[in-house]
Design a protein around this nucleic acid. Structure first.
Length: 470
RNA sequence: GGUCCCAUCGUCUAGCGGUCCAGGAUAUCGCCCUCUCACGGCGAAGACACGGGUUCGAGUCCCGUUGGGACUACCA
């Protein structure tokens, strides 16, 4: 029998999508995709004070960039109050909920008293059996069982049970008429047909309360899977002070979405000794029972290495495409994509990020180059002028200006001059790229093209002469 | 304070009672490759929090201790 899996990702639009949220989204997405089910996006924007349109937009952009496509939504909780009210009314009319007239001040006082006595602060049930009607300032509470236990079998943590005495009659409708978080979540998850709730384990303590709402409603209870938290290097919960934590920041630093997804997947989940996964493999191999229980520190170094690997694995063409926005930001608008692919092909083995790659590609992006101080001092010296001059002559004469032809030319030239490539390559590298580190010198020459190579060698000769004459 | 969850190299983790004097990845350090930088190859160093059980045998099961974390709102 095919199980129709439906999962969801319900971010609050109070900030950017950070990597913790992204991982939760990823696991839900993978689970749904693997089982041919549905993945739903829902924006939990019931907190009008803290929710912003910018945050919503940033979350959607992040999801799209990551490629975590959703099948339904985004649903906005702020537009679903009718649904929540229906659920609340159902609870009210079946006697599972009641109006409570206790004032916030009274409640707060009771909490303080309980705390000072070392007791658990919970609602004392004053209005529970008073059969009160609605009134200004009153709230609606769920009538929860006074005894017994509420338990569930967490798909990652195993069986978890709570004594009902720990749970009090939670508010489900505020005095301003709006539904509270727990009610809205359950109402949504029921009405959207959720089968699996995969979320951070900061919600395990919320789960029994929500189960009680399902039960009061007489609705089937979905499966729960609580993911361990992601921690910063100091082992505290991930937050802004840990540096770049938003998904978009990784995009802007030149990470590939698949690399981030790969890294996020391996934070908490494992598949034997395998570290590197394509998206397809992730979908195929993901499984909740290989999700670990312990919170983990987000390891930026490892992600960087993964990104380098994903860059190496990417096709030159796709890299050229990924590079485009970065280039445009620097004003390079009409670059030939064939050339960019060629550049990517020689740079991808030595770039950990797309930004690195742009940096490495500088020498062939613009007409003029600057010499690194170190390279200049060490390699652009009088003794290479003659060599450069002779080399230039040979290059001008060559017909086949590609790696192969260039390599042959060099073999002959080195033979004739009785020198090693070692002696020639570094000065030439500085002359052509301005740097002491670059892709192989023959590759650099081919990408640059004959004309540019000759121009730069001549320019270097002139520069050295001016330098030594002066 | 209470409730719940968690605990293997610095970090991410494999391990689902014997095949573990604990494996992989990353980071670090050597060596090799080499026109530079990378990539790649080889190697070094590095962990079962502690204490009790259970068992012929425990990283693996149970209890406790310690240490983390989450929740404890008319916030989500």
């Amino acid at each position: 029998m095919p199980e129709n899996v439906i999962t969801r990702f319900p971010p609050s639009p109070t900030g950017y999508l950070h990597i913790g949220g992204a991982r939760t989204a990823l696991f839900n997405w993978l689970f749904a995709r693997q089982r041919g089910g549905k993945f739903i996006l829902r924006i939990e924007d019931t907190d009008e004070q803290r929710s912003t349109d910018e945050a919503t937009a940033a979350i959607l952009t992040s999801m799209e960039w990551l490629g975590l496509s959703w099948d339904e939504g985004p649903y906005f909780q702020s537009r679903r109050y009718d649904i929540y009210n229906e659920f609340i009314d159902r609870l009210l009319s079946s006697g599972q909920a009641y109006h409570c007239h206790c004032s916030p001040e009274t409640l707060e006082r009771q909490r303080q008293e309980a705390k000072s006595k070392g007791l658990k602060p919970k609602y004392d049930g004053t209005c529970r059996n008073l059969d009160l009607g609605p009134a200004p300032g009153s709230v609606v509470r769920l009538k929860t069982p006074l005894s017994g236990t509420t338990q569930f079998n967490d798909l990652v943590k195993g069986p978890i049970r709570f004594s009902n005495e720990e749970l009090d009659d939670l508010i489900i409708r505020r005095s301003n008429g709006s539904p509270t978080y727990h009610l809205a979540v359950v109402a949504d998850d029921i009405s959207l047909g959720m089968t699996h709730i995969i979320r951070g384990d900061d919600h395990v303590n919320n789960t029994p309360r929500q189960i009680l709402i399902y039960k009061a409603l007489g609705e089937p209870i979905p499966q729960f899977a609580h993911l361990p938290m992601i921690l910063g290097p100091d082992r505290t919960r991930l937050s802004k002070r840990h540096g770049a934590m938003s998904v978009l920041a990784y995009r802007d630093m030149g990470y590939l979405p698949h690399a981030l997804l790969n890294g996020l997947a391996r934070l908490g989940w494992s598949y034997g000794d395998q570290e590197k996964f394509s998206l397809e493999e992730l979908i195929e191999k993901f499984s909740l029972d290989h999700v670990g229980k312990a919170a983990g520190v987000f390891n930026a170094e490892k992600l960087l290495d993964l990104n380098a690997w994903h860059i190496r694995e990417s096709s030159d063409e796709s890299l050229a495409e990924r590079l485009r926005p970065f280039l445009e930001k620097e004003g390079f608008v009409d670059l030939d994509s064939g050339k960019m692919a060629a550049v990517a092909s020689i740079l991808k083995v030595r770039s950990k990020t797309l930004v690195d790659m742009i940096e490495g590609a500088r020498f062939c992006l613009s007409e003029d180059i600057d010499y690194d101080k170190q390279g200049d001092d060490k390699f652009l010296k009088q003794d290479v002028v003659v060599l450069f001059d002779k080399l230039c002559g040979r290059i001008e004469a060559i017909a086949e200006f590609n790696q192969n032809g260039i390599e042959k030319l060099f073999a002959q030239f080195l033979e004739a001059e009785q020198i090693t490539l070692r002696k020639l390559a570094q000065p030439l590298r500085v002359a052509l790229t301005g740097k002491t580190a670059s892709p192989g010198i023959f590759e650099v020459m081919e990408v640059l093209g004959k004309e540019t190579v000759i121009n730069r060698i001549k320019k270097a000769i002139a520069y050295i002469r001016s330098k030594t004459d002066g």
